[in-house]
Structures are given as C-alpha cells and as structure tokens.
Computed example of a mutant assay.
Amino acid sequence: MKSFENKVAAITGAGSGIGRALAFGLARQGCQLALCDVNAEGLAETAAQARKLGVQVSETLVNVADREAVHAWADQVVAEFGRVNAIFNNAGVAQGGTVEGNDYADYEWIMNINFWGVVNGTKAFLPHIKVSGSGHIVNVSSVFGLFAQPGMSAYNASKFAVRGFTESLRQELDMANCGVSASCVHPGGIKTNIAKTARMNASLSSVTGQDADKAREQFNDQLLRTTPEKAAQVIINGALANKRRILIGPDAYALDGMQRLWPAFYQRVVTASMRLAARLSPKSSSKKAQTATE
C-alpha cells in the first residue's frame, strides 16, 4: 500500500495511547476506521474525535483475547465498510515480576492478550485483507521483543513471540505475492498508560530494589519519553514504506544496537546495571541504614 487514503483500517487498543494516535493519524490521511478496545469510555472518545476529521468510524467493544469476538468483529467490519485493508494489532498489557515470583496465571494473562491477541487479529483479518487486493498487517511488539531484562520474563516472552510470529508471516506473504504485507513494530518508551496499568508483584523488588509502586513511578518518569503521536506517525510511515521492522525512539535504536553488537554479552551489562541501580535505590539505602542501627 502506498497510501491510506480511501482505505479501511482496523485498530485494536484504540481507546488510548498509540492506538488513539494511530486513529487520528490515519483519519488525517482520509482512512476509514474500525476501532476496538475493552475501555468503552476511552473508545467512545477516540471515535468521536476521529469523526470530527471527516471519516467514517465504527467502534466496538472487543477483548482481543476472545478469539470468537475478534473474528465476529472482523466480519462486522467488512459488512459495514465493504472491505478492510489493514489491521493494526496494537492492544497490549504489561507485567513485572521474577520467574520464581510469577504465577502461571500471570503468564497466561499476558500471553492471551499480547500474543494471542495478535494471532487472533491477524488470522481474523488476513483473509479479508487479501480479498481487498492491497493491504498491510501491523503487529506491535516492543523493544523488549528484541532485548530482554530481568523482572520482565512474561512481557519479554509475549513480545518476542509477536516478533517471531510476524517475521514468519512477512516471509509467507512475500512468497505468496498476494498484495498484502506485514510489519513488526518495536517501540521504546512511549508516554502511554501501559506502565500505570501494568501488573507488578512483590518479587520485582528483588530486581529493582524498590516496591512495585516506586518502580512504576520511576519507569513513567525516566523511561517514557516518546509521545504516542510521534510513535503513530513512525508506524504509519513505516507501513507505507513496507518496512519489516519499525523501531520507535532513540532508546529502541540504542538497545537494538547493543543486542546486535553483543548478542549474548549484553545480558551481563544489563545485570550489572540493574544490580547497581538496586543498590542505589532509596529502599535499598533505607534497609542498609535500618540494619546498621539494629
């Protein structure tokens, strides 16, 4: 696809963050929108603002982990718009905790949304997109789909899985030469609500030296630097350029470069830096002071 004008795009997780910014960015290019989210209020707000940009918009409450609901939504989009040219599998959640500290339910929860949500969206929309004759599948992974770190095993696993799934899909579409392509997106720190709504358990403190709330606050303040609007524009441009991998933010490029340069050794660098940060954290310092006075 060389343009989104007069095309139809479906977006998951459109109620806030990158999903909302994608809706506005695509609408400004004359793209009709089929939006979904589990947050009714946020979804309605996105849809209302997008309609002001002069395009047709539909809004549907969908949990991407619900396979039947996603397939029903895809059929509904085609019935309403007559076609669909693109799916942006953007919906995602985060979770923090050590492998030992996490429950099996933590892994199941995040994989159902981050990975199976992408699989569900891709398989539900791909046949319809192929019928349109020209289209694109955009699956949002993360910089942590390229680069792992302690305390993020569940999130890393889900995002590495999205990367592998999408890279395999892209090669299959290249071989099929069917007019449809795919891109995998790897954002760095984006100013969205994902960190605020992340599930974190007490085991994370053994890695960060902080409790979950403090770790969340520091993550928001120090690591989330790129705006959703900037991220959306990079994604849209990357899809139009038919990029296989779309990196967003200087942090994403830096971590990707480190992993390429030191594919195994980077883990030692991360471990050393995390140990140092944990020792310097206020919680660790207060513990040492308390021990010294006892």
Score class of each variant (00 low, 15 high):
residue 2 K to S: 11
residue 3 S to F: 03
residue 4 F to N: 01
residue 9 A to Q: 01
residue 9 A to V: 11
residue 9 A to G: 03
residue 11 I to Y: 06
residue 17 G to V: 02
residue 20 R to F: 08
residue 24 F to E: 12
residue 26 L to C: 03
residue 27 A to H: 06
residue 28 R to H: 09
residue 28 R to K: 15
residue 32 Q to T: 10
residue 35 L to N: 02
residue 36 C to D: 02
residue 41 E to S: 13
residue 44 A to I: 02
residue 44 A to Q: 10
residue 45 E to H: 08
residue 46 T to P: 12
residue 47 A to S: 12
residue 49 Q to E: 14
residue 53 L to K: 01
residue 57 V to K: 08
residue 58 S to Q: 09
residue 59 E to A: 15
residue 60 T to F: 00
residue 66 D to N: 15
residue 69 A to K: 04
residue 69 A to Q: 07
residue 72 A to F: 00
residue 73 W to M: 14
residue 74 A to M: 04
residue 77 V to S: 04
residue 77 V to Q: 02
residue 78 V to D: 01
residue 79 A to S: 14
residue 81 F to T: 04
residue 82 G to Y: 03
residue 82 G to F: 05
residue 91 A to W: 01
residue 95 Q to G: 10
residue 98 T to W: 00
residue 99 V to P: 07
residue 103 D to F: 05
residue 108 E to M: 06
residue 108 E to A: 15
residue 109 W to M: 15
residue 111 M to G: 05
residue 112 N to F: 03
residue 114 N to R: 12
residue 119 V to D: 00
residue 125 F to R: 05
residue 125 F to G: 09
residue 126 L to A: 06
residue 129 I to W: 05
residue 133 G to C: 07
residue 133 G to T: 11
residue 134 S to G: 10
residue 136 H to E: 13
residue 138 V to N: 09
residue 140 V to P: 06
residue 140 V to M: 14
residue 143 V to Y: 05
residue 144 F to K: 10
residue 146 L to N: 14
residue 146 L to W: 12
residue 148 A to K: 10
residue 155 Y to H: 15
residue 156 N to T: 15
residue 157 A to E: 02
residue 157 A to L: 13
residue 160 F to W: 15
residue 161 A to M: 09
residue 173 L to V: 10
residue 175 M to S: 13
residue 176 A to G: 01
residue 177 N to Q: 15
residue 181 S to Q: 06
residue 182 A to T: 12
residue 184 C to T: 12
residue 185 V to E: 04
residue 186 H to M: 12
residue 189 G to T: 14
residue 192 T to M: 05
residue 194 I to F: 12
residue 197 T to F: 00
residue 198 A to D: 04
residue 201 N to A: 08
residue 203 S to D: 07
residue 207 V to T: 06
residue 209 G to V: 05
residue 210 Q to F: 03
residue 212 A to Y: 01
residue 214 K to A: 15
residue 215 A to F: 15
residue 215 A to E: 07
residue 216 R to I: 07
residue 217 E to Y: 06
residue 221 D to C: 01
residue 221 D to R: 15
residue 227 T to R: 08
residue 228 P to F: 12
residue 228 P to A: 14
residue 229 E to A: 15
residue 230 K to G: 01
residue 235 I to L: 00
residue 237 N to A: 15
residue 239 A to N: 08
residue 240 L to D: 08
residue 242 N to T: 04
residue 244 R to T: 12
residue 250 P to Q: 09
residue 251 D to P: 03
residue 253 Y to H: 15
residue 255 L to M: 14
residue 260 R to N: 12
residue 264 A to W: 10
residue 265 F to V: 10
residue 265 F to A: 14
residue 268 R to Q: 13
residue 270 V to Q: 03
residue 273 S to E: 08
residue 276 L to C: 04
residue 277 A to L: 07
residue 279 R to F: 05
residue 282 P to L: 11
residue 283 K to G: 15
residue 283 K to N: 11
residue 285 S to A: 14
residue 288 K to N: 07
residue 290 Q to Y: 08
residue 293 T to G: 00
